[in-house]
């Protein structure tokens, strides 16, 4: 097992700069700090999906990734921990976020620890993490940590007289949960054999040569 854990970060914000990237950076920093406290170094790869939007669409149409997209896919699928942050559009993760997930091999995120993050204009969409993102990663057999972090516009600074945001505390708690799993993950050391045959496979079939 290597001493350095690989953390991949997906930021699906469309504007530059985006609050989605801002949240992703805060979550990344907190995760890296927590890993360091555990004596674990982290190697971070940040993937801004905006930069890959055309490549993702082309992959959907042609069935293969460009070199640039292939590198991003490898960083995500070979990570020890993933921080996935999307804006909430029309009650759910953005189309670009889902399109990127759609070009991944459905088996490739199995047992990957994931921290779910989302941003939106109003805190009334905060449950989108739990009714949209969490089932998506459950389907992919990833391990989503219990705390998801949703940041509404108000979380970045409240008007005078309002209660102060709980965002920093939520970030710290979620990052701790991810770091605990990523610190003991061996995913980035695994060698995947693309030609591994299914167990019990016979070139003459289950009834054998007759």
């Amino acid at each position: 097992m290597s001493d350095v854990k690989k953390i991949a970060v997906i930021a699906a914000g469309l504007s530059q700069p985006s609050s989605t990237r801002l949240l992703a950076d805060r979550l990344t920093e907190a995760t890296v700090n927590n890993l360091r406290e555990r004596g674990v170094d982290a190697e971070v790869t940040v993937i801004e999906l905006r930069d890959l939007a055309h490549d993702v669409t082309n992959n959907l149409l042609t069935g293969f990734p460009s070199t640039k997209l292939d590198a991003a896919i490898a960083a995500v699928t070979g990570a020890d921990g993933l921080i996935a942050v999307t804006p909430i559009f029309t009650t759910s993760y953005s189309g670009l976020f889902k399109s990127f997930i759609d070009v991944l091999d459905p088996q490739s995120l199995t047992d990957l620890p994931v921290l779910l993050g989302a941003t939106g204009g109003t805190d009334r969409h905060s449950l989108a993490i739990d009714y949209a993102m969490r089932p998506l990663f459950s389907y992919l057999h990833a391990v989503a940590v219990p705390t998801g972090v949703y940041a509404a516009s108000a979380d970045w600074g409240s008007g005078a007289g309002s209660v102060s945001s709980t965002l920093p505390a939520r970030i710290t708690r979620a990052a701790g949960e991810l770091a605990a799993l990523a610190a003991v993950s061996d995913r980035s050391d695994r060698v995947i054999d693309p030609f591994a045959l299914p167990e019990g496979f016979s070139p003459v079939g289950s009834f054998g040569a007759q």
Binding site: N58, L61, T62, F64, S66
Partner: peptide
């Protein structure tokens, strides 16, 4: 039908 409306012909011939 297979690759239309996707990558440019130049990218596709490169790849």
């Amino acid at each position: 039908p297979v690759y239309g409306h996707g990558p440019s012909m130049e990218d596709f011939t490169d790849q």
